[in-house]
Design a protein around this nucleic acid. Structure first.
Lengths: 243, 243
DNA sequence: CGCCTATTTGATCTGATTCAAACAATGTGG
DNA sequence: CCACATTGTTTGAATCAGATCAAATAGGCG
């Protein structure tokens, strides 16, 4: 049903533009090295000066900032099809760290190859720019979530986001998804303590909105979950709004 | 000392690339309409589908998300030289609202004109893409600030950021800057109550780090302020790190 | 002068943190 | 296949940072 490894990027860009055959060929012709990593592996460190971009093929990764007192804040999750460090094409120095959550398969592409591709097929460059703009939109919601929603709504909102994004890349069947995020990681993403995340998840379970167990998320009541999280998917800029 | 109205964009792009004479000419040749607005004026509403971009020439604006319960979260401030809605070039529908803080002068440029410019001078497109990537980096820090720093550090960090960015565009002389942000706006940006913002600012004043009064910010002890806010300017990706 | 907006103050309350520990699941090597 | 270690989840109690509510004061400006 799915295409082979190398084309989740094409699938994603198709969501954004009508790709011409020539453009798809250019993408398939990209020189890409495939690498596998284990879980909880730091892929890029703050301060690095990467010369390659990473296309996530399988698995989940997160980005985070570290504070001097040792705390960390996860600022994004990424799923298959995402080029999670496109920014390194234009910003020399990494301002945050990227780490795998689960075991991952990653396609590594040289900056030079991508920049050359943009020259030949400018619309592909624009499509990837667009992708980074959607990332930015997600950051804005993330700020809003952490800044102005209480623990319950905040958690519900993030669950909604992750679920919809996994749906969008074909990784959810019906109302169940493989859930790659531990409670401690959720806490770092939500700006909460892991203890409180636990209690909020129990609340959401008791209210029969969702259950998360053994790395599976099940949505019991999508409508109420959305309401609880004050969630509106338009900020994800998906072609056909699933939710 | 400063160039006329139309060139803060050139000054900014110069920070990022060596602009060729031809490229500067292309920028100067852009067809731009200059418009003035009063304070607290909504420039773009969530849901809008803009066909033009806005280059801020004078004044300050902010972006924010509104929650259904009426609260709002400010997610960014912008200062002269910023194209604060470049995203509308590639994302049809606005996912947040933009409003002036102070009276503003704005240069309005048609999307079509910019996209045409990118075709002719691809490096200008890349420079503006880079700009949007720096915005994204700022969002990430904003999430981190709101999610993981306590009220004092959070406030100090934002003050540092705004100060450095104003410095970078030549709007600060020594340690004093025109401060365009009220305490209520600060609260919406920091995810705090305006009452608590007030108390934190008093603390920072008592500790002799800063004073904000009559729309002037004065930095008394930059080193300690940076320390208090756990501030490191590298995420701003400025050419010559001022701070 | 008088209105409106911004800042400040005090008192009270609460959502979430922290600390500490138990419990459950998963995986590893003997 | 079991014993043990490790990581993730759950529980309870004490505490606190920051919110909320309510009202006073101070600037700025037409």
């Amino acid at each position: 049903m799915n295409e082979p490894d190398s084309s989740p990027l094409i699938r994603k860009l198709r969501q954004e533009f009508q790709l011409a055959a020539l453009e798809e060929d250019s993408l398939l012709g990209l020189n890409m090295r495939v690498v596998d990593h284990g879980a909880d592996k730091e892929l890029i460190r703050e301060g690095d000066r990467p010369t390659e971009c990473n296309l996530l093929l399988q698995g989940s990764v997160c980005r985070y900032n570290e504070l001097t007192d040792g705390k960390r804040q996860i600022v994004a999750f990424h799923f298959p099809g995402d080029i999670f460090d496109a920014q390194s094409l234009l910003l020399q120095r990494m301002d945050h760290t990227v780490s795998t959550l689960t075991p991952c398969r990653i396609g590594v592409i040289a900056h030079a190859a991508l920049l050359k591709l943009f020259e030949e097929q400018p619309r592909i460059g624009l499509a990837i720019w667009k992708d980074t703009l959607v990332d930015a939109s997600i950051y804005r919601q993330w700020v809003t979530n952490v800044g102005r929603r209480d623990a319950l709504a905040r958690t519900a909102h993030l669950v909604c986001e992750v679920y919809v994004r996994l749906l969008a890349v074909g990784l959810a069947r019906e109302s169940t998804v493989d859930w790659p995020i531990t409670q401690a990681e959720l806490a770092d993403a939500l700006g909460m303590s892991h203890v409180h995340v636990n209690r909020v998840l129990q609340e959401l379970r008791k209210a029969e909105l969702i259950t998360i167990e053994r790395q599976k998320l099940t949505i019991h009541d999508w409508k109420q979950l959305k309401a609880a999280g004050d969630f509106d998917a338009t900020y994800l800029h998906l072609r056909d709004s699933i939710a």
